[in-house]
Simulated assay, not measured.
Amino acid sequence: MNYVSKMLGAPDISVTLARAAARRVYGHSNRTNPRAVPTSHRYRVEEVPPALPRALFDTHFAPLTERLPSVTYEMQRYLRRAASLRLAELISGGTWRQCATALAIPENSARQTLNVLGRAFAPDSLWPIFENVVDHIAQELDESDARVDYVKRRRLMAQWHLPADHHYAMCQDLRKLRTLREQSNPSPIEVLVWSAVTEAEYLHSPILRALRLSAEGGGRSLTLSIHRLVRPTSPVGGSLRLRPTD
């Protein structure tokens, strides 16, 4: 493995060779990714969402998900995060941990993504399929005239809070969500709006991050409330209306 890591770090290694060796190094959190030479893509790292939007995932990922034994909610979350990390890698040539910083994704989340997908992809050597899928998404981004600066969005939303009257108006016919607002401060809806606007995972929201870093080490009850809203076993009412936004 040391030899492979040194080989992949060589400045004159071809992209073809790097991809051929990818199965042996992807999934090891203490190894760098196969070197990706920055390409001539038109999109910028700032225009890569922290979590691949579900519409793009549903459109492009069938060639990969059809090869996996099961695609749970959690696996979809890892795949969407990995796609964004790979899109950033194609532009910067950096490791996924370096790309995570640019996308405001915790480094340990990038490391965990590599480990999880490494185990899932290794038996059938699926990394090249994953890379081909993301290449198609990169091409679609290149051709889009409506790219978004997600760094700017995150900056604008960093201190945003949902006014109480706006929350009540949004939940006028959704009693359960009104009750959650009365019981929770901050509101679960506030976190979900941030997630929808920034195309980022709600777990990485500034609100939850601040709660986790607080002296009380809070955030668990709010996280569970959001989790129940977006992943109900039998979604009804407000949960059914919220679920497609996740």
Rank of each mutant, 00 (worst) to 15 (best):
K152H: 12
R178P: 03
R81Q: 12
R77Q: 12
R54L: 15
R111V: 08
L117I: 05
M75T: 11
E190V: 04
G218P: 00
Q172T: 09
N115R: 13
K152Q: 14
R67C: 06
L208N: 03
L68V: 02
V71W: 00
A18W: 02
A104I: 05
T245E: 03
A10P: 12
R24C: 01
S40P: 01
R155G: 06
W194Y: 10
F57P: 06
P244T: 04
Q112E: 12
P106Q: 02
F121A: 03
R154A: 05
S225C: 11
K152W: 08
P34G: 06
P123D: 04
H167E: 10
L68E: 03
S70F: 06
G93D: 03
S214Q: 00
A164R: 14
F121H: 07
S70Y: 10
A200Q: 13
P49Q: 06
A120C: 06
I13Y: 02
S195K: 09
V191Y: 04
Q76D: 08
V48E: 03
Y168W: 14
L8E: 04
A138M: 02
K6D: 14
D135R: 13
R97M: 07
E143M: 07
P186T: 04
R243C: 10
L56D: 10
P186M: 02
L87W: 04
Y43Q: 04
M75E: 01
L141V: 05
Q139F: 11
W96I: 03
A196H: 10
R67N: 03
A210K: 08
L240H: 09
L211F: 03
R241T: 08
S70V: 07
A104R: 12
H41V: 05
V148T: 15
S225R: 15
A104G: 01
L177M: 11
D246V: 12
Q159G: 07
A158M: 05
E46H: 08
I207A: 00
A120D: 07
L64K: 10
G27F: 00
R231W: 10
A10V: 09
N185S: 12
L224Q: 14
A210D: 09
S205K: 05
S234T: 14
A36G: 12
A100P: 01
W160S: 10
V230S: 00
S221K: 15
D173S: 13
R228I: 01
R155I: 14
L224C: 06
A21V: 10
T16E: 15
S239Y: 00
Y3A: 14
I91Q: 08
P244I: 05
I207N: 01
H136Q: 15
S84K: 05
R54D: 15
A138K: 01
P69L: 01
V133E: 00
T59P: 01
N33S: 09
L174E: 13
